[in-house]
Every structure is written in C-alpha cells, then in structure tokens.
Amino acid sequence: MAGIPAPGGHPGIEVKNLEHSYGDFKAVDGISFSVKEGEIFSFLGPNGAGKSTAINILITLLSLQKGEASVAGFDVTKDPQKVRESIGVVFQDITLDRDMTVWEILEFHGRLYNMSREERKKRIDELLRLVQLEAKKDERTKNLSGGMKRRLEIARGLMTRPKVLFLDEPTLGLDPQTRMRMWDYIKGVNNEGTTIFLTTHYMDEADRLSDRISIIDHGKIIITGTSYGLKNTLGQDLIYLETSDNEAAIRILQGLYSVRDIKSKTKGFVLMVNEDGTKVLPAIIDALRDRRIELSTINLKKPSMDDVFVFYTGKELRDEPEGKTGYLTLRPGGH
C-alpha cells in the first residue's frame, strides 16, 4: 500500500544528490543532507542560493529532476500525496487572499487540511492570540500592515501539527520583538514533536533556532553542523590585529601553538585561536614586541554565525555589495 513508508525511509527528511536546473541555470547543484525526526534544521544562505528551489521540491510543488528526496518517510516522486499529508508550509512571499478576512484565511486552511470544527476553532483562537491579531479577526487581509500579514501567514502555517513543517524565511520583515515570540512558538511546536526545516538569511535566526545548520551558496551545501560546531571550526576566539608590518607579523604568529589559522584583511589580519583569546593575547603581544612590530589595533571576539558564513562562503550575507565590508568582518560590539 502507498501509505507505508519506503524501506530505508525515515520520519525526517532525506535528500541525496539533489539537482535542479531552470534552463541552463543550476539552482540546486547536487545537495545531500538528512534531517532527523524532531530536529530543527536550517538552510542558511543568501538570496538566490537555491534554498527556495530545494523547499519547493521537498513540498512537491516542483517535480524532482535529479537525485532522491524523501519527507516524513515518503518519496516525493512516488508518494507526493502522502508527503503533502505530512507537511505544513509557510511560504516566503505573502500568499494571502486580499479579500478574505483573517478568520476566513485560517478557517480555509484548517478545512484544506481536514481539521475538525472544534480543532479549527481552538487552534484559530490560540494562534490569533499568539500573533496578536484577535482584534483583526474580521478584517480583510488587504487592510493589514505588512508585519500583520506575515504574522497571519505564520499562524496559518502553524494551524496544523504536521510531521514536518517547512518555513521559508519565516520572520522576514518582522520587528525584533515579534521575531523572538515567533522563535519561541516555533520551538514550542518543535517540542511537541514536529520536525522543522527552515531557510533563512538571518544569522541569528539560524543560530538561535536550529539544532543543525547547512550553509548553502550557489546551489551547494558548503558545510553542515551544529551552531556550536560550526563556530568552533573557526577556533575559540577571533583576534583582529593591525600592525606596522602585517606580513612579518603573520609569519611570526603562524608558529604559535594555539593559532589555528590566519586570514589576511585589507588593513590587518585575523587570527583564529584554539584557546581562550584573553590567555593567548599576552603571548601574541610579546612575540610581536620582541621583533619590534608595532600594534595599532587589537580586537577580540567569539566567532559568530556571521563569521562562520563569511569564512565558508567568502562573502557577507547582507545585501551589501561584495568586498565592501571585506572578509571575516569583525564589528565592534559583536553582532
């Protein structure tokens, strides 16, 4: 029977060598990953990295061209109906009927997913409270502000308690307070057993929300790991230095036991160190002083997701032009 999960399929998400092209353009270029049941898994990457294409294949809106993919144990090609029964989706752009009221939007969704009347009522009340749209219940969506629309869409995506919930840029355009409430709610849904796959280009979102993160760029997964693990690949601390002779300084510091890697920047360079930076710093300063190299700037910080991203993709995630803010940027005060 079609309802039985394929042998070897597991309740999360399994993707092998997935490829998808639009004409000559390869939007997804051979990605493989696996999301465990009950996990929150993020695709972190800039716009156009292939995140949405990958999601569209997994939610069966795009047919699979090459590779294998299963969701909740069902093959997206062989058993799309079963996949659709197991998932929930929050889309990237606003997909609300302008002429339906807030309540109608949620009611329609609940009916689409065959929820019982009582269940719909209970869930709608609960969600309207969560996204603070109770007062707007009978308002048509065209009269809502952008933020309200987004909140309504998230509420809609959370109406059902699917096995796997897909969130495509869930908090795009929300104010910080609402974002944090959303994160809490998403975690709550996850705690009730829903596996969550989300795409985002917000570092902090990937960082705070997910169990594991894949950094994706140009249709390829560059690295996958836990937030802690990914940051750890950059060492314990990052130390930014500007000196009177950077080249000489780099040569000297390469020899230090605790230095994992060094990246040159326009005016200075960054050391990735395996030990607590505050302990390493005196040794660095001493070593440079001995060779009469003068220090003009020192900055020390913990690696952030931004640093991880910049390190692995070679560019900033924000919409700034490439190269403007440079490589492995360190901002005062951290970010």
């Binding site: 939610i59 069966t60 809106l61 109906q81 659709r84 029964e85 998932i87 989706v89 889309f91 752009d93 606003i94 997909t95 609300l96 009927d97 969704h109 689409l112 997913y113 065959n114 809609r156």
Partner: peptide, 14 residues
Amino acid sequence: NWGLMREILASPMN
C-alpha cells in the same frame, strides 16, 4: 499568479 494556489497545491487536498 498571486501565489495563493501554492497553499492549496501543497495541501493534502486532492
């Protein structure tokens, strides 16, 4: 055209 069909097509409804 307005993306509303996606909600329906990604749902379990036949």
